[in-house]
Design a protein around this nucleic acid. Structure first.
Lengths: 338, 338
DNA sequence: ATGAAAGCGCTAACAC
DNA sequence: GTGTTAGCGCTTTCAT
């Protein structure tokens, strides 16, 4: 039983392909096609379960009903959760997602973008790595809907969704200070993108207000956890005078806890701990770790809403919009003195 | 600057589309096209960076170079990691992945399969939910390459990759028994699929050999963690006489630890703990949790190798193959008496 | 060894 | 209102 085409339907019903096509695309009314015909076509289509071939449709219309999603690493729970929510919303709106992990690697990302473009994706959702400005710009200039999230590119004018990174770390650092901690270190990935710079800035600002010294340790981004854990352990070992440590991402935080465990450091008596991103590990660690929770649902929702909006209204005249979302500081025992 | 088509190339070079097409598809030799022509075409194509439109190609050939990946939940670290590895390998082989989460929901999965089929995916990688036998069967009968993983469907003859579930739980339960534990509970999702039944069976077999009583608690699969944690907590509260507990999946394990923490149960003094699947949380919990680690890389590798193999050799005469992989029991402090 | 042309299944401009 | 038809960009048969 071969799959039937619109031509088969038309022939069987003794009407033309056009008529069927119009009806299927909901333009029957607009084209003033007779009720009776519309019903006959609808009925038959339902009966045989005919579905237009999306490939042919895409070739003809130039739209693929596909969204390209590029995250840092799909196996990172933060990105995986967001991907999950975006996926749901996209499918509900008739779009499918093709995704890939950039590893924060510019060259890889460039390849991936060109692959997406070859595949004729209709829109892009990207957590961009450094140095990818030009590629994104040319995408935008070509009229492609592009929504950035998690971070943005200052010189590229396109939609983006971010959280209030600066306030988040500022607020969390203030919390540590209020708890009486004075020697607060900040451990993070070496990264000069908006989100990480803002986080660092929030930390510095809070310390500055209290006239405290800052201790920053930057780790190179890496897929291998040992290469993250080891430098953290070394740093903590060398700086025994610290009384608190702030981890800049969930990944750094998880590796940091590994280092702390290995070194036998007691939390919070020896060292208070806060991490960016909330994560199973932080809730279950003993003591539970104070963490900055990003509003995953709200992020995913905003991202897809903004993108679908662009996709549907072909209106280029909406200039780019940015949405900044709030985070929650979940205070747990790792950062409390009493 | 419009994207050029094969016709543009042909016109520019004063050859026919056919010639260009043959050269691009590496059939120059076979078609005995002159070296000189081949080189000219190659050079020009490289120069202008021409890429054939995959949509048109797909429409014509019926192949989409797309693999459909269906997992239980892409935000589960186990599936996310596997997806990540499969993604890498697939891209390297010119395939793209479109994925979705089934939530172990048969109706949803059915819809998703039909969507994938409409999209003309070339092959399927599926962690199937219960009750989906017929749909998978008809896929297989239609000649589609389908690789199942994590679990399989006994009545469907297609390739699958699994781990040795029965031995894994048997072995881990034996370990608990050797450590002197006698009242060992097994907490798992209510599920009648091959992998979960085998795990349960391994547990029972080990207990049976020692003549110990079994205590099984089944939890309904759910997206909401609280609805998993609560019944576990209730179970543990009601059965204070237990001296060890075995969690059947990483998700149950993580929620179980939450329950244990909330109840203030001391591990392993009050209760020894083992979980299926290894996971950050288990390594960092204090004490670290003994866990059965699945060979993620090997699973992903086998899955994609088997599928690519099917995809390339159009040989239907390879009857279905199954691969069973070994797990590692990572013994940690949560299950040791001394 | 190379080219003309058919056709994959669909949409939409244009004719009637 | 409905039908005819020309493509979208590619592969491949068949003729030369």
């Amino acid at each position: 039983m071969k799959k039937l085409s619109i031509a088969d339907i038309a022939k069987h019903l003794h009407v033309s392909k056009t008529t069927v096509s119009f009806i299927l695309n909901g333009r029957a009314q607009e084209k003033r096609i007779g009720r009776e015909v519309v019903e006959r076509v609808q009925k038959f289509v339902d009966e045989v379960g005919y579905k237009p071939n999306p490939l042919a449709k895409s070739l003809r219309t130039g739209k693929s009903n596909t969204i390209g999603l590029m995250v840092e690493d799909i196996s990172n729970p933060f990105f995986a959760s967001i991907a999950r929510l975006i996926e749901d919303r996209a499918y509900k709106n008739g779009y499918k997602i093709i995704y890939c992990s950039t590893d924060n690697d510019t060259a890889k990302t460039r390849d991936l973008i060109s692959m997406f473009r070859d595949r004729h994706v209709d829109g892009y959702i990207i957590a961009p790595p450094e140095g990818i400005e030009d590629d994104i710009s040319s995408l935008v200039k070509a009229g492609m809907p592009v929504v950035l999230f998690d971070r943005h590119l200052p010189n590229v004018s396109t939609d983006f969704i971010e959280i209030d990174n600066l306030f988040s770390t500022y607020n969390a650092t203030r919390h540590l200070i209020q708890q009486g901690y004075k020697k607060i270190a900040y451990i993070t990935f070496a990264n000069n993108q908006t989100h990480m710079l803002a986080r660092l800035e929030g930390y510095h600002r809070a310390l500055g207000e209290s006239g405290y010294e800052s201790f920053v340790k930057e780790i190179d981004f890496n897929q291998n956890d040992d290469l993250i854990t080891a430098p953290i352990a070394a740093f903590l070992k060398k700086n025994k005078n610290l009384d608190a440590v702030f981890f800049g991402t969930n990944h750094v935080g998880a590796c940091g806890l590994k280092a702390i465990t290995e070194l036998g450091i007691k939390v919070p008596t020896d060292l208070a701990v806060i991490s960016f991103d909330d994560y199973d590990v932080f809730k279950l660690f003993s003591p539970p770790i104070t963490a900055i929770a990003q509003p995953i649902e709200a992020i995913a929702d905003s991202v897809i809403t903004v993108l679908l909006n662009r996709l549907n209204t072909s209106s280029q005249h909406i200039s780019s919009q940015s949405i900044i979302l709030k985070t929650d500081l979940n205070i747990r025992r790792s950062s409390k003195t009493e």
